[in-house]
Computed example of a mutant assay.
Amino acid sequence: MTGFTVRCLGLLGCWLALSVAVPAKADPFFVRVYGRTYKIDPRYPSEEPKGPKPQDAMKALPSDLGKGPGFRPSHEEVLAEVEERVWIARNQLDTKLDAAAGGRGGRNGASDPKTARQEITGSLAEGNGQGRSPELQTLYDRHRALNLLVRELRRSLDLPVRTPDSGFSRPKLTPEIEASFRAQNFDPYAAYIGFRRVKAAFRSNDPELLARTAHYPVTVTGKVRRTIRTREQLIAARETVLNQGVRDAVAKTTFETVFVRDKGMMLGDGAVWITNDKTGFGLGAVQVE
């Protein structure tokens, strides 16, 4: 009898251990994006810092993300739009983290900026950054939510879920579009990445991000004519280069409809030119009416 009891207790212990080690499978949930609905895996990616459940993390998505654009976008179009938002959030977050880590490292001789950044990121992942910097916590939460979303969008299209180094997934281009770029000796996929970066920078309305995409000198034509030769000059001219008319023209332009010539890509009937040099494609000219 004693041996039977011991065996039963042993089996019970094994069952309890398994019940702890193997959690019940969580049900997927759904998110509305640009008028389309996507199923989201409730499990956290293994390489992501642990934080709130994906259902809770997704609450930080931009509020306008679920609105339909007035037409039914393809899944590829939805992915491209969200990738632009991820690019914006990632670059803005990196800038803020570097600034915060540099200041913290300077105040604490035992903490170099790299270590300080890791500490700050860990605090933000746990949601403990509000007290020190509500703006940084909000930006971190938005980037995490968008990054989780874009992983699932890529998965739904049978694409690798890992973020490409460029930040943008390779599009499916028609032979005609590829040919139009190759006729100018342009790599169509490099042109696409440059197009998305410039488009995202205008979307952000952030002159710091726009400056990252620029090929200096940047020519400004129209009512105002000038040549912008440095990052500082471009940031100072934000009211001109980021005026609403230019931003609207860029927002309405798709990669499939850009005009291509040896100079580069024309967006919005000449509102913006994206030019090519040895560093790739970037902002080359702005026309202000």
Rank of each mutant, 00 (worst) to 15 (best):
A249D: 07
G66D: 07
G282E: 00
D187C: 02
G10A: 14
L146Y: 02
I235N: 04
I88E: 05
N276H: 13
A236T: 13
D277Q: 03
A201L: 01
D41M: 04
S180W: 00
T254D: 13
A200H: 05
V246K: 08
V161Q: 14
K263F: 07
K25S: 13
E84K: 15
Y38S: 09
P69E: 09
K199P: 09
R162I: 13
E81T: 04
A89M: 02
E126H: 10
L65N: 08
G35D: 01
D262P: 00
R162W: 05
L16N: 05
T221A: 14
A26L: 13
N205F: 10
P164R: 06
P188V: 01
D27Q: 12
V258Q: 06
P73T: 07
L11I: 12
A190C: 01
S63E: 15
A80F: 00
D94G: 11
E239K: 15
G66K: 12
V224C: 08
E84Q: 15
E256I: 00
R107W: 06
S133K: 09
R117T: 11
G13Q: 11
A200R: 03
R85S: 11
P171G: 09
K278A: 15
Q137W: 01
T121A: 10
G268M: 05
T37V: 12
P207M: 04
R151A: 05
V286N: 07
V224G: 03
K50M: 06
A179W: 04
A179K: 15
R142Q: 15
R104N: 12
I235D: 03
L61V: 06
S180C: 03
S74D: 08
K39P: 01
T213A: 13
V82A: 07
T213C: 12
G122F: 02
G102T: 13
G68Q: 06
R182P: 03
R229V: 10
C14Q: 11
P160I: 08
A24H: 11
R144P: 04
G3N: 14
V20A: 11
N128V: 00
G127Q: 07
P164K: 03
T138G: 13
G268F: 03
P160G: 07
R155P: 08
G245T: 14
A237F: 10
R72V: 11
T37H: 04
V20H: 10
L234C: 07
E119D: 14
L146H: 05
P73Y: 02
L209V: 05
G102E: 12
T254S: 15
T275P: 02
A201N: 00
N276W: 00
P217C: 11
D94R: 14
E208C: 01
N243T: 09
G10R: 13
P160N: 10
Q130C: 09
L148Q: 06
G222D: 07
R231Y: 06
R7K: 13
T279M: 08
R144I: 09
L9F: 14
Q137L: 07
L9S: 08
E152I: 08
Y192C: 02
E84H: 06
D64W: 12
R261K: 12
S166N: 04
G127E: 01
A57C: 11
Q233N: 02
G13R: 13
N205V: 09
I88P: 09
T2D: 14
T253S: 14
F186R: 06
N147S: 15
F195A: 07
S111C: 10
A249W: 05
I88M: 11
G129K: 01
G10W: 01
G222H: 00
V20N: 06
V150L: 04
D248W: 05
I193Q: 08
D64Y: 14
